[in-house]
């Protein structure tokens, strides 16, 4: 299932709609990178509210997405991870330690706004 990416100001918002295949994930990675560069985005929000299983591959890909976006000077926030999914992830040993997380879209936006405010000072 393709992940739609919306532009909001200088941010990109990618909202996962349901289960993702490996191919979907790789496609998402490519699409996000391409757009971050082309649109000079300062931040990316990846909304995982609709995702009900996250295995090692998905987790690794998300980490890679965040890393690559950082290298292009933008920040990534993962939002919407469900309680059950979060618990399964940490049991699997996937803590996404290097990645910023927030409760939902609103919190994710607040985080990015805060960050760009700090950068301007």
């Amino acid at each position: 299932m393709e992940v739609p990416i919306l532009k909001q100001g200088s941010y990109l918002i990618a909202t996962v709609q349901g289960a993702l295949t490996d191919a979907d994930l790789l496609e998402l990675r490519a699409a996000l990178l391409e757009r971050v560069v082309r649109m000079r985005s300062q931040g990316v929000i990846l909304d995982l509210t609709a995702l009900d299983v996250m295995d090692s591959f998905a987790s690794r890909t998300i980490r890679e997405i965040a890393d690559m976006i950082r290298l292009r000077g933008a920040a990534t926030v993962i939002v919407g991870i469900q309680p059950e999914v979060a618990f399964a992830m940490v049991q699997l040993g996937l803590t996404l330690e290097e990645v910023t997380t927030a409760l939902d879209l609103e919190e994710g936006l607040a985080y990015l706004n805060q960050k760009s405010k700090e950068a301007r000072i």
Binding site: A86, Q91, T101, D104
Partner: peptide
């Protein structure tokens, strides 16, 4: 420990 880590994944 798992609870602490899972909470962080939720943004807390």
């Amino acid at each position: 420990v798992l609870t602490v880590q899972a909470s962080r994944l939720l943004g807390a």
